[in-house]
């Protein structure tokens, strides 16, 4: 089953084309890393999938539900709001800068959306929240505020918060880029565990070793385009495109 189907999407910021005719299909349980130089449109692509950015052209379907679509003449097709909402809700997202709610404790951060959006009762939500915090190894921090924990811990809370909405797909937008080097491992560890549980994931990352280890496919983006989409062994050891070789040489040096 196609979890994500992206067909020829484009996006401009003013006159700058940040996404150019991008197409991608993701199957259930696949882990896909998106790599490439900064400014290549990786984050914009991820944000477009969950409608934090609006595309200008193309089509996005999540588990068969179209959430953004244009007709042949380039006119936006108006889609039923409920379907769009349902499609978007199948995804959870984790940001580079965590964006935890600072006025809520760790546990409150995790159970906020289940209570407010899914109308879960408080007791159920708390037990769900505690289970997820245990999973990311932070049950002992449940009553702390975000300002009282480390960056790595914040990002693990953010992952638990996203998982609390029971998404089928997780999007990670540079989840370790804002972390001190010694804290990167704990976050990658949590993501690896999700991969073992067969979570479908799209991960924008600069951690090449991690991308190699955890991904089924690696997508290389440059200047708003997907240059190559291949299994990690192929992309890292024998990429088709010279630009990828140059990029890898630069960062592995």
């Amino acid at each position: 089953m196609k979890m994500i189907y992206v067909d020829n999407i484009s996006k401009k910021f003013g006159s700058l084309e940040v996404l150019k005719d991008i197409s991608l299909e993701v199957k259930k349980g696949e882990v896909i890393s998106i790599i490439g130089p900064s400014g290549s449109g990786k984050s914009t692509f991820l944000r477009s999938l969950i409608l934090l950015e609006q595309i200008d052209k193309g089509r996005i379907e999540i588990e068969g539900i179209p959430i953004s679509a244009f007709d042949d003449k380039g006119k936006r097709i108006s889609l039923p709001r409920k379907d769009v909402k349902d499609g978007v809700r199948k995804m959870g997202m984790v940001f580079q800068n965590f964006h935890l709610f600072p006025h809520k404790t760790v546990l409150e951060n995790v159970i906020e959306a289940p209570i407010i959006v899914n109308k879960l009762d408080k007791k159920e939500a708390v037990s769900l929240g505690e289970e997820l915090l245990k999973k990311v190894g932070l049950l002992d921090k449940k009553d702390s505020y975000p300002s009282q924990i480390s960056g790595g811990q914040k990002q693990r809370v953010a992952i638990a918060r996203a998982l609390a909405m029971k998404p089928d797909i997780m999007l990670f937008d540079e989840p370790t880029s804002a972390l001190d080097p010694e804290l990167v491992g704990e976050v990658l560890g949590v993501i690896k565990n999700l991969a073992k549980e067969n979570m479908t994931m799209l991960i924008v990352t600069h951690e090449m070793g991690f991308a190699k280890e955890v991904s089924d496919r690696v997508v290389f983006m440059d200047k708003g385009e997907i240059i190559e989409d291949a299994p990690p062994n192929k992309l890292f050891n024998n990429p088709d495109h010279p630009r990828i070789k140059a990029f890898l040489e630069k960062i592995l040096k």
Partner: peptide, 14 residues
């Protein structure tokens, strides 16, 4: 208030 707060709330379905 940081724009990220709105985005975090939005992707959670609020």
């Amino acid at each position: 208030i940081d724009k990220g707060q709105y985005e975090a709330a939005k992707v959670l379905g609020l």
